[in-house]
């Protein structure tokens, strides 16, 4: 195996020991999260950090010089009007943009200090550390069990898969509903259940970061609030970055909020309470109060 895979390896233990600074960061983060309240004045060291990040689709610029520091074990919401580049930014983090031919990324985006666009980074190994949940529930046409075990199988995760599947379904608040029908197809579930299945699938291999692109927008209100509760709980162990165009949702579940506005700029980034109560920029205030968007 080449060294890039040891840097972004499927093995979660590997990732922390590979880079000595990463180790330090973990400790610091723990200390920071123990001492600080939600009104953090001393922000913990970021797990994801971008500097001067530009993204182009062909000639079209979708993201313009994004600088952001996303803290560990927090929920960071990304809000903004349609087409402002929220999904594009999210796809930069796990390099799903690589799959779009016209897409070109410039600048730096690092995960635990390592620029994921360095040539020695294997995007497949990166994605094993950064899970993703999509807008439309997209379970595989396989059994519920096989859906959740998918990441375990392809990543060769050691351990008792039955146990991990059960734990993941429990964490996704789905176990009680499906424990008796693990063999039936994931497609037979309702929309909300499917999305929770996708969350269970994403967390089963225990990624460090969970990206969610409008995970509740295709769901009815009841399912939405279930998924939202779930996200708040997940934040205890995961760094969650969630795109939403639902302002209340962002306010309710996130610790930090990033506001992107048309043109692909990050206009404001800060603690959620501050952004919603007292934004610095008039454009952000207009957007949040619904005067534009």
């Amino acid at each position: 195996m080449s060294d890039n895979t040891s840097e972004f390896s499927a093995d979660a233990g590997d990732g922390e020991t590979a880079d000595p600074t990463a180790d330090d960061m973990v400790i610091e983060t723990d200390v920071a999260s123990a001492t600080s309240s939600s009104e953090t004045t001393t922000t913990p060291d970021p797990i994801i950090r971008s500097r001067d990040l530009d993204v182009f689709y062909g000639e079209e610029q979708a993201l313009d010089s994004i600088d952001i520091d996303i803290p560990e074990n927090r929920v960071t919401a990304i809000i903004g009007p349609s087409g402002c580049g929220k999904s594009t930014f999210l796809r930069c983090i796990n390099r799903m943009n690589d799959r779009i031919e016209a897409c070109r990324v410039e600048g730096e985006l690092s995960l635990r200090g390592k620029n994921v666009y360095d040539p020695d980074v294997d995007p497949v190994a990166l994605r094993r550390r950064v899970g993703m949940v999509f807008q439309e529930p997209n379970p595989f046409p396989k059994s519920i069990y096989d859906n959740v075990a998918y990441g375990l199988e392809i990543q060769d995760v050691e351990g008792d898969h039955d146990e991990i599947v059960e734990q993941s379904l429990k964490r996704a608040a789905l176990w009680d509903e499906v424990s008796h029908q693990l063999d039936s197809s994931g497609l037979e579930l309702s929309g909300g259940q499917q999305q929770r299945l996708c969350i269970a699938r994403a967390i089963a291999p225990d990624p460090e970061v969970l990206l969610m692109d409008e995970p509740a927008s295709a769901l009815d209100p009841v399912a939405t609030s279930q998924v939202e509760d779930l996200i708040e709980e997940l934040a205890e162990d995961y760094t969650v970055v969630i795109v939403t165009h639902n302002m209340q949702q962002a306010a309710r579940i996130s610790d930090k909020t990033a506001v992107f506005l048309t043109g692909g700029e990050l206009v404001e980034f800060g603690d959620t309470d501050q952004i919603f109560e007292n934004p610095e920029h008039d454009r952000v205030e207009d957007y949040i109060t619904g005067k534009f968007g």
Binding site: M96, R99, R128, G131, F134, N138, G151, I154, R201
Partner: peptide
């Protein structure tokens, strides 16, 4: 095969 299904697999870190 829907593109979303493929994306789900690649997003899980599948080759």
């Amino acid at each position: 095969v829907p593109e979303e299904t493929r994306a789900a697999s690649y997003g899980m870190g599948a080759t």
